[in-house]
Design a protein around this nucleic acid. Structure first.
Lengths: 365, 365
DNA sequence: AATTTAATTTAAACCGGTTTAATTTTTTTT
DNA sequence: AAAAAAAATTAAACCGGTTTAAATTAAATT
């Protein structure tokens, strides 16, 4: 089939090609092509005539045909495990914005943490000879799964999540620092029994954030009760389930550090249903600083990550890498910032006063 | 430049093409092509040998080249005005899911309500000969702006927002009904002084939802105070600003109908900051039923829209339209459903008791 | 074994651009 | 006006597949 030529087997207007433009002007295809691409070799008046004819004929450039010979598609892939998560929605928006102002299009893929979907996407990108890829790898992604990327020298920047042993560009957040600060803040407020919701070991972000939590606890010379380190889905539901488990533990924690804001907000939601008041009955901190964290009714203290910056840096780095494939591998780490709202309470006294007699085994200063 | 051939001007392995596969097997290009496409004409053993050789040689199909002759790119565009809005994030996720399981890729565009961005995107799609487009048009989009779509017979389905006079497929929600039900519910609870936040006249969704509000008010024989119909940005910030204006009006409304959940949640946030309790001091209802609406601390009564269904229907309809361009134009309207939570209060008595003496000019029934 | 018929395979044109070395035209210099 | 230099244009090969009518080969009939 010949494309829209044969709409309804009646109309059969062949597409207008560069050749047609050339013919109507009595010049060669080459001249028209050069003119379109702004090559300084074609004379000004010639270029003008060509542009005018293109307009009159309604000629439309066929970038696919061009890509066949140039090998450049000006399309890149963007795969994240869940762009329904506001964090990624924002990062992706920033990426798309930068790419489109560089006249590139973005193929989107929501992998849903499925390496199969991810592999399928990468294979499709290679088939289409995409110029590059920005990837927040699904859990379980390793170097072996990324073979197509290396085999094809597909310029790739990893977003947020790193891959062990990967010699790929990376743009992310200083997750260890973020959670260390958040945890330290709670400790500074006087909390001693602190739990962590979410995280786990299956990706670098989770490990880094967990390790930030542990590091701060160690620095504060506090023991971590393993029963208060609760793995859960990276979603509000996950947080809601996890908080119930945490609170059932005796004695309950006075503060909870959450792997992400989604989890923290789920925890807030769960606490609300239990009749507990975050910031008064229990402290909660999150990480990401998604918009919902700053509502009047959430006021979530959280590690703020500049999502726009991450997206922009990632897009720019990819563009750079595409332009200069031999550039040494780069790692760009954005510094997070703790924003203190009300979910952690203002004063440890709230908690101290409240919990001391219930399980006040600690009289230290 | 010849593509990755010349990585670093050292390695210069030409790409392996269909021709190479044919040559190593001593068959023709045509046979290999047919084999790849599963044409029943090629003998089983031949196909197997070809597939094996493809594997051994590491040949990778070049879909761009194929598209040049078939005119089918198996790529479609997906443009929405704000995929940072959870409503659209979910719809887009559903769309991408359906498309990718149909072996299509999606070009994503976040128009930010900019018709320029949108036009740029559409032009790029046409240049790339995309097979179709799913579009939630930016405010201000009219038939004239959609000329490229018609000129190129680009199969297009409008998502959520319709365009006046457009003979294009459409998948959306029964917005008028949704807000009519929500408003009627408030009236049924005894509310008399009801305001509306957000909406306006600049797109079909806004008009339909407004009109649902007015219709319900009229049906309840209630007057709408124009000062309580407040336009605002479709965002939590918009809602927060609008609620302040509404509450400043004397007498204040006892209930607020919001154009979207984003606005409603902003309103909730604002009310919280003012020390007012939704569901007790004032009723609030939203529309969309985004996830945040169901948190323990929001409990927003809202018009629930099946976002996954809308996304799936839109994607399926596009696929259908691509397959059968001459199909009559279709409109698929998903029925919404009012979900009652606590932000509207359970009993009008809350409000009646509370407000009667403050400005109790109404002793009816 | 000779025909017919069915199953496979292939040659070659085509899709619509890019690119480079060579040619033609124009301008400058002598 | 001739020669040299610079500017503009072009022919033709190429990118990597698809497609169809024709050719070849194999299988079924007579």
């Amino acid at each position: 089939m010949k494309r829209k030529d044969t709409v309804d087997n009646k109309i059969k207007t062949r597409n207008i090609t560069l050749q047609d433009v050339a013919k109507t002007l009595g010049v060669s295809k080459a001249t028209v092509s050069l003119a379109i691409n702004g090559d300084p070799r074609v004379a000004l008046k010639t270029r003008q005539k060509i542009l005018q004819t293109i307009d009159e004929l309604g000629y439309i450039y066929n970038r696919g045909a061009a890509s066949l010979s140039t090998g450049e598609t000006r399309a890149v892939g963007l795969a994240v495990h869940d762009f329904t998560n506001p964090y990624f929605a924002e990062v992706c928006a920033a990426i798309e914005s930068v790419l489109s102002s560089n006249d590139r299009m973005s193929f989107l893929c929501n992998t849903h943490e499925s390496v199969e979907r991810q592999q399928h996407f990468i294979a499709a990108l290679v088939e289409r000879r995409a110029d590059g890829l920005i990837l927040c790898p699904a859990i379980g992604t390793d170097m072996a799964l990324l073979r197509p990327v290396f085999d094809w020298h597909l310029p790739t920047v990893l977003l947020t999540r790193d891959i062990d042993g990967a010699t790929l560009d990376f743009v992310g957040n200083d997750d260890e620092l973020g959670l260390r600060q958040a945890t330290a803040h709670l400790i500074g407020l006087g909390h001693r029994r602190i739990g962590m919701l979410g995280g786990g070991q299956n990706n670098t972000v989770a490990r880094a954030r967990r390790s930030g939590f542990y590091a701060a606890m160690a620095a504060g010379e506090l023991a971590v009760d393993p029963a208060l380190v609760i793995d859960c889905a990276i979603s509000p539901h996950g947080g809601e389930a996890a908080v119930a488990i945490a609170l059932a533990r005796q004695p309950p924690p006075t503060a909870l550090v959450c792997f992400t804001d989604q989890i923290a907000l789920g925890a807030l939601s769960g606490l609300h249903r239990m009749g507990l008041r975050p910031g008064q009955d229990i402290a909660v901190v999150g990480c990401d600083d998604i918009e919902e964290a700053s509502r009047g009714y959430t006021q979530l203290t959280t590690v703020s990550i500049n999502k726009a910056a991450i997206g922009e840096k990632a897009a720019q780095l990819l563009l750079r890498r595409i332009a200069e494939p031999e550039l040494p591998v780069q790692r760009i780490i954005i510094q997070p910032e703790l924003v203190i709202r009300q979910s952690c309470g203002s004063f440890a006294t709230n908690f101290a006063a409240q919990h001391q007699n219930s399980y006040g085994e600690r009289g230290d200063h």
